[in-house]
Design a binder for these strands. Structure first.
Lengths: 191, 191
DNA sequence: TCAATTTGCATCATAACTGTTGCAAGTCTA
DNA sequence: TAGACTTGCAACAGTTATGATGCAAATTGA
């Protein structure tokens, strides 16, 4: 590839990124927003968006693919298979929250569409299951709680924390893991 | 009102209910479904839907209003202000889950739109806050947990439980409250 | 059976969004 | 400066959803 082509492709890729980020901003507030609104938020003409993404579906797909790559990288960076479960839980949580704060809409759309995206998500989910299994084996997680329910609760808490945007990712992760493991009760029954 | 009118109005109201229930079924699966799809699911012509509801917005508004009434009644039935906090928590949870299982979409759209609906939701939220406050005072809830975060977690768990549809409302409520109060951890640290 | 009402059907108008194309103007590199 | 490429603008076609209306048929109670 010539230097010229590379430079020009850089420009194009910058535009693509700008559009993806604008789309995330707009669609996270209103999932039914039009291409026009997305283009306006990106500071480009609607035709430019259509030149870069053949259809609305392709745009959302690209958003999902991009967010999914970040997501997988965030989980990977925490080495969830090679650190003590509790440590991994904190690291994964904080890393994922950082991504989810910026790509909430894209991540919510990541389940359908592209098979490659679905595969990565299934991979991460499986990793999560393994992590929870290890946590249970070392006694961090209760044995009398359905692992699937525990995972669902974990996902729900991550979603809720990202929505609340209360504090930075580390503070949120700390509170989230605390709540996940200890709950919000004292254990004193009726008090 | 004449007997005739009453009988005829009864018919009309039956149709309205049929449409509302069909709309819930259809829109909970696909929020972007068309009026045509809703009409088909209700077994009526699209024009009939338009005759009963001036616009799509009016239909969704009616769904929200209907679900909100059920929601408020579900909370009310548990007498959350006059029973021990832990008991009220169980009762409210089970009752709300029953409504949410049937009117998930309508309840998710209850926040915007109609001011009356918004008021009822604000009322219920305030009731929830009072309940949590009492629970904290009698030592059921930890004093070191932000009450607002606790409430958010509670809402998130209700949402997740309703999504999972794992078991009946009572079983779900039992598990939900257990998770809310004790979490899924053993409290044994790194194990 | 009569009268009121509701429904289905066909049809129409309108609006909005999507996606495409041609062309002039701009940018960046060689 | 020349060339390759990208962008904005304007205009267009096609599709789809929305909402309204007139009329015949069906229902229901009196």
């Amino acid at each position: 590839m010539s230097e010229t082509t590379r430079a020009l492709r850089s420009d194009a890729e910058r535009t693509v990124r700008t559009i993806l980020e604008a789309a995330e901003r707009v669609l996270s507030r209103n999932p039914a927003a039009s291409m026009e609104q997305i283009a306006e938020a990106a500071g480009v003409a609607r035709t430019t968006v259509h030149r870069r993404f053949a259809s609305r579906e392709a745009l959302v797909g690209a958003m999902a693919a991009w967010a999914t790559r970040q997501f997988a990288a965030a989980v990977e960076a925490a080495h969830p298979d090679n650190t003590p479960p509790l440590v991994a839980l904190y690291q994964v949580t904080a890393n994922v929250l950082r991504v989810k704060l910026d790509w909430g809409f894209a991540m919510s759309r990541a389940l359908s569409a592209d098979p490659e995206v679905a595969r990565v998500h299934a991979d991460v989910e499986e990793r999560c299951r393994r992590l929870f299994h290890r946590a249970r084996e070392v006694g961090v997680l209760r044995a009398d709680v359905d692992p699937e329910w525990a995972r669902r609760v974990y996902y729900a808490l991550i979603h809720e924390a990202a929505e609340s945007r209360d504090g930075d990712a580390d503070a949120m992760a700390t509170r989230l893991v605390d709540t996940l493991l200890r709950g919000v009760g004292t254990g004193r029954g009726l008090g």
